[in-house]
């Protein structure tokens, strides 16, 4: 069911639960749901998240350095929540949210 919608819709949906979600969690979950394997898809999903944040729909509430290499060693990990604008756009996109 979930894997029928565009990836960015699903990302917004995943971030809409109150506490927010870490980017590596989102990437892993989407790779599993959509059957997208490998580093290329991993990076491309992460880039979708970056675009959503740059467009003002997601904002990070927590940042930490990836010391253990959960995602990419030495890079930053971000925990994202939906912004108010993101909620409006998510509602436009007919998410079950709101």
């Amino acid at each position: 069911m979930a894997a029928n919608r565009p990836i960015k819709f699903r990302i917004l949906e995943l971030c809409s639960n109150g506490g927010g979600k870490w980017n590596y969690e989102i990437v892993q979950q989407i790779q599993k749901e959509y059957g997208l394997k490998g580093n290329y898809h991993r990076d491309s999903i992460n880039f979708d998240i970056i675009e959503l944040a740059s467009g003002g729909m997601l904002k990070d509430v927590e940042v930490k350095v990836d010391e253990e290499g959960i995602y990419k060693k030495g890079f930053l990990l971000h925990k994202y929540v939906l912004t108010d604008f993101g909620k409006i756009r998510a509602a436009d996109a007919c998410l079950v949210y709101v």
Binding site: N4, P6, I7, Y34, D92, A93, C94
Partner: peptide, 18 residues
């Protein structure tokens, strides 16, 4: 080449919002 046909199909179906 980028493996995006799947995403294209998903996006085209979302006519109204997208």
């Amino acid at each position: 080449a980028l493996g995006k046909f799947g995403e294209m199909k998903r996006t085209i179906k979302e006519f109204k919002p997208c």
